[in-house]
Simulated assay, not measured.
Amino acid sequence: MAPLHLIALIAALLSAGLMAGLFTGYSYSVMPGLKILDDRAWIAALQHINRVIINGRFMTAFLGSVVFALAAVILGCFLDDKSALPWTIAGLVCNLVMFIGTMAKNVPLNDRLEAAGDPAAIEDPAALRGDVEEPWIKWNHVRGIASLLGLAALAWALYTTGLNA
């Protein structure tokens, strides 16, 4: 059981790290970089990014951050030494905040941008951008912070596991 727990914990840590890097990268570079675009170009850029991000690499890390953390929690319940379990649970909770925030907040905003259609044909692109940009960025910060905290908790869980091996 211990080797499977270790594998699940490492996979959860790597997945959380990928998500933390992605979402914080959006916070400190992508969205500030896109801010200079006019409204139609901003909408077009977000639409394109939202289409290409749904791929196997993203989905593996995105879903893996929750699935692998859950597996590590379940497997950790069967270990004699449960000292890493609270940190693993904390990592899972943070990854769930990231996952649920993405699905409940960012994805509907992405869908709204996509449903608007061709940016050149949008009657009031400034209004659409005004409705989407601020909440999207706010929730991206939330999921970035949640991912970073999840990464830290899982790293500490792995460290604790190594101390007691």
Rank of each mutant, 00 (worst) to 15 (best):
A2P: 02
A2K: 10
L4D: 13
H5R: 12
L6E: 05
I7Q: 00
A8W: 00
A11F: 09
A11V: 06
L13Y: 00
L14Q: 04
A16Y: 02
L18M: 08
A20S: 11
L22H: 08
L22Q: 09
T24W: 14
G25M: 08
Y26L: 09
Y28F: 12
Y28I: 15
P32H: 06
L34I: 14
K35C: 01
I36M: 08
D39P: 02
W42H: 15
L46R: 05
N50Q: 05
R51H: 13
N55R: 04
M59T: 15
T60I: 12
A61W: 00
L63K: 07
L63G: 11
S65Q: 14
L70Q: 03
V73C: 12
V73D: 09
I74K: 05
F78M: 09
D80A: 10
D81V: 11
S83C: 12
A84Y: 00
I89D: 01
I89W: 07
G91I: 01
L92K: 01
L92H: 02
C94F: 12
C94D: 01
N95D: 11
L96G: 04
V97A: 15
V97H: 14
F99R: 00
T102G: 12
T102A: 15
T102S: 10
A104W: 11
N106D: 06
V107G: 08
P108C: 07
L109W: 14
N110E: 14
N110F: 15
L113A: 12
A116F: 14
A116S: 15
A116G: 11
G117H: 10
A121R: 13
E123G: 05
A126I: 10
A127H: 04
G130P: 02
G130W: 07
V132P: 00
V132L: 05
E133Y: 07
E133D: 04
P135E: 09
K138I: 02
K138N: 06
N140W: 07
R143G: 02
I145T: 15
S147R: 01
L148G: 13
G150H: 04
A153G: 09
A153V: 06
A157R: 00
L158Y: 03
L158S: 15
Y159N: 06
Y159H: 13
G162P: 00
G162N: 08
L163H: 14
N164P: 02
